[in-house]
Simulated scan of single mutants.
Amino acid sequence: MVQQALGRIQWGDLTFGPGSPYTVTAFEGLDDLPEIRGEDVPRPGQHGDYSGPDYTGARTVVLKLGLRAETPDGLRELSLALRNATQPQMQPAPLQFLDQNTLVYGKVRRRNIPYDAEYLWRIGDAALEFYCADAYLYSLVEKTASTTAYSPAAGRTYPLTYPRAYGSAGTSGRISARNDGGSPAYPVLRLDGPVANPAIEQVTTGGILVIDATLQAGEYLLIDTRSRAVLLMGSSPRRSWVRGGSTWPLLRPGYNELAYRGNALPGIPDQPSLLTVTWRDTSL
């Protein structure tokens, strides 16, 4: 159920909001649209501009907290725990809005825990600013779907024997993926061998991603469509395997259909290859 109240917020091991000693007193940046980076250009010799696509800049999330303890020592412990949880970061980390089913990835860029001798008996305040280079809002729920690859009928087995043996009929590998957000979602694709020259087609919008390579049984390829990383066994870069002119799949808001095709390897036609698609509902 959608809740209008902000509810609980998770950052690392700390939880803010109802049921915690950190009350949320003010908040901004979650439902706000980040600053737009427009690609408009002036019309030469005319009034107005030629309007290009709009993109957003980074998202800034500001969180103000009230610290509530039973003793001054308890208040100091809350301040130290908050300080230790908001150190400078090498990489963004998830800031989770547990009752809003929303997730952003951010870094703490500012922290303010003021000292006020008049109120430091058991009550304090703090303010945190999170810089989210990735402005998207993601669902907490990660969705996944899998299918085996379509492969043509294997045909007859040679040399001919009696009774004659025919290969199995072709199968159709399709995935229906629903993005309940308002912006395109970038899926993560995992291809498990054995398969030669696997391809993922966007049936709904057109375009196809083709991998010019062979995966043996037990090998897999991980493809992050946002960063466009292509990793054999999840670690070895293989970006050069992507065929020129390929289209990186996106999951538009609503239903999307993907088709997975590939060629069986000689001698193992009955071992299916598997495509697994993972995504989160995405909005701005």
Rank of each mutant, 00 (worst) to 15 (best):
P237T: 04
V195Y: 05
L222T: 12
D49A: 14
G182I: 07
Q10M: 07
A58M: 03
V188H: 00
Q216P: 00
G52Q: 07
A165G: 01
G12S: 08
F16T: 04
V188I: 13
P159Q: 05
R280L: 09
T205A: 14
V104I: 11
F97L: 15
L33K: 06
S172H: 11
Q4C: 03
A213M: 06
G182K: 14
T225H: 08
Q3V: 09
R156T: 11
P249F: 02
G17M: 13
T15W: 08
F97G: 03
S236F: 12
A149G: 02
M90S: 13
P163T: 08
R174N: 04
R190W: 00
Y260P: 06
R243F: 05
Y50G: 04
N179W: 10
Y162R: 12
L215C: 03
S20N: 15
A81K: 13
G45Q: 08
L231N: 01
S235V: 13
G173E: 04
P266D: 15
T86G: 04
E142V: 00
S168T: 15
N179I: 07
L232D: 01
I123V: 12
Y138G: 00
V277M: 01
I175A: 02
D212S: 12
L98C: 08
S20V: 06
I9P: 05
Y22S: 12
Q100N: 09
T56K: 06
G52F: 11
E219I: 02
E257R: 15
A165P: 01
Y138S: 03
S139H: 05
L284K: 10
V195G: 05
Q10L: 05
L258Q: 12
R122T: 03
A213L: 10
G262C: 08
R238K: 10
G19T: 11
L137Q: 09
Q202W: 05
S146H: 03
S227D: 08
P72T: 07
T214M: 04
E118L: 14
T102A: 14
T102C: 14
W121N: 04
K107A: 02
W248C: 08
Q271C: 05
D13L: 11
L258N: 12
I9R: 07
G38D: 15
Y55M: 14
G254H: 09
L33Q: 14
N101C: 06
I175E: 00
E257T: 15
Y138W: 01
G106Y: 00
A229K: 13
I200A: 10
V104G: 01
G181S: 00
V210W: 03
M1F: 11
E28P: 00
E129V: 15
Q10H: 10
D125V: 04
P152C: 06
Y55I: 08
A154W: 06
S236Y: 13
R164L: 14
N197W: 05
R243H: 02
S168Q: 13
F27Y: 11
D270I: 03
A85V: 06
L222A: 01
L33S: 14
R252L: 10
P194G: 03
Y162F: 13
T171V: 13
G167L: 02
Q4N: 04
L251M: 12
P266C: 00
A127D: 08
V230K: 02
E28V: 13
V62M: 06
N256D: 07
L103D: 01
L140C: 12
E201Q: 12
T56A: 13
G244E: 14
R122A: 09
L63Y: 09
G267P: 09
R156L: 14
N256R: 12
R280S: 09
R228G: 00
T225F: 03
G38T: 08
Y119H: 10
Y166S: 09
